[in-house]
Write a protein that binds this DNA or RNA. Structure first.
Lengths: 223, 223
DNA sequence: CGCACTTTGTGCATTTCTTCACAAACCCCT
DNA sequence: AGGGGTTTGTGAAGAAATGCACAAAGTGCG
């Protein structure tokens, strides 16, 4: 973590990272037509301990009912609202290699108001190609397109060496939330949110954990 | 994190998650023919603070030279060794949708001894198809193939509802390290290492951070 | 050869995160 | 209406991670 810090309201960042997991667990119960869950059931589904779930929810001022549990619908609404998922989030993907194309088509991105609305690439030979319902635009069009479509989140799926330039372009165009798949630490101005996902790093950590010397271990956000 | 715990040797898990980042930063310097770096330079490249870098390296018993810095080659070797990257890690990818195919072809996977050696899918209509240099095998072949090729790491890129079955199959076949892209908390026996990457969760966190009420914030593994 | 300068390694303080333990709150049954 | 049985919400304890400040250890110049 390099950017800025200090969530304005006092929700710990560790808690924020888990809220989406709780939301998904709730959806799971909803599809089974369960209307009430205990912290124990919900925590089991989410892969955390009940006590942590309750503490996390307490930061939202969220209220279950003692002796009963949580109303699935109500808690879903509260979490959805807390996460800001009751609006639309136009997403742009930059970098149309294997990963970028997969992300552009990934159904996980289509949930909860996230919509891929624009695709960009540097390579002239792919500009104009259709991926899903969208045409790949050139980097030169980025500023205009981002402004016109009100892109809120930029996904960087380029090689490492162009990631910083892309980030600068996105920020310059007004994007203030970036999901970065390139294996570099981006330098970003204060006020720009960034999450990085690094596949090679994940494999490296697994390799460490699986070394014969070290016994069964489970580091980090295993679940 | 739900699985087991307690890295046998006392390297904090937060440190372990950063070691691959340092290794990559070192590679960057090496390609520029730099042979010595200070903790300040290396930390800047890695996106952390110098003091944290030094503290992390101290857990390895790694030694730089006071007044000088670190020898790029030597530190690279030490980190490579500590992470267990001086051997080959055969990887299998299960689930040949968009994401699985991208992962199978992803060059980031090809670094440092990680080699995709087997591909699996449930869908009969894609079994036998070639992706890269490999044929997609059926789930029924999983146990045999994993054993024969000595697969060390299983990557799950299936929908959420089949992820647990796939995990069980992998573990049953002897795989004890899993990289999970399905949005579920896997239940795994003690001694199986697991890292989960959840794209939807990352977007949700970004949405939270970008809500108007909360000012610039940067949660979690932003870099 | 010694002194000034640089940069590491680390004990300690601080902050953040997790877990425990229990009182408060609510339902339901009689 | 009251009491037993649950399950939440939370203060306080404990653990982990981070950041500070400085001593230790090296280089190189005079």
């Amino acid at each position: 973590m390099v950017g800025t810090l200090a969530p304005r309201r006092d929700i710990p960042s560790a808690t924020v990272s888990r809220l989406p997991v709780y939301l998904r667990a709730l959806h799971e119960f909803a599809t089974r037509d369960v209307t009430r869950v205990s912290s124990e059931e919900l925590a089991a589904q989410a892969g955390v301990r009940p006590t942590q779930l309750r503490k996390d929810l307490s930061h939202l001022g969220s209220h279950g009912v003692r002796g009963v549990g949580y109303d699935v619908g109500r808690l879903t609404a509260e979490l959805t609202n807390a996460l800001g998922l009751n609006r639309s989030w136009p997403v742009a993907v930059v970098g149309m290699g294997n990963l970028g194309r997969a992300l552009a088509a990934y159904s996980g991105f289509a949930t909860e108001g996230f919509h891929v609305e624009a695709l960009f690439d540097h390579d002239p030979s792919v500009i104009g190609d259709l991926v899903g319902r969208h045409r790949i635009a050139s980097m030169g069009e980025l500023t205009d397109v981002v402004a016109r479509l009100g892109i809120a989140i930029g996904v960087i799926a380029t090689p490492a060496n162009s990631a910083q330039d892309v980030a600068d372009a996105l920020v310059g165009a007004g994007v203030r939330a970036i999901l970065n798949f390139a294996p570099v630490a981006l330098a970003l101005p204060e006020g720009v949110a960034c999450r990085s996902v690094d596949l090679a790093t994940e494999l490296h950590v697994l390799a460490f954990l699986r070394q014969p010397e070290r016994v069964g271990a489970d580091v980090g956000r295993g679940q």
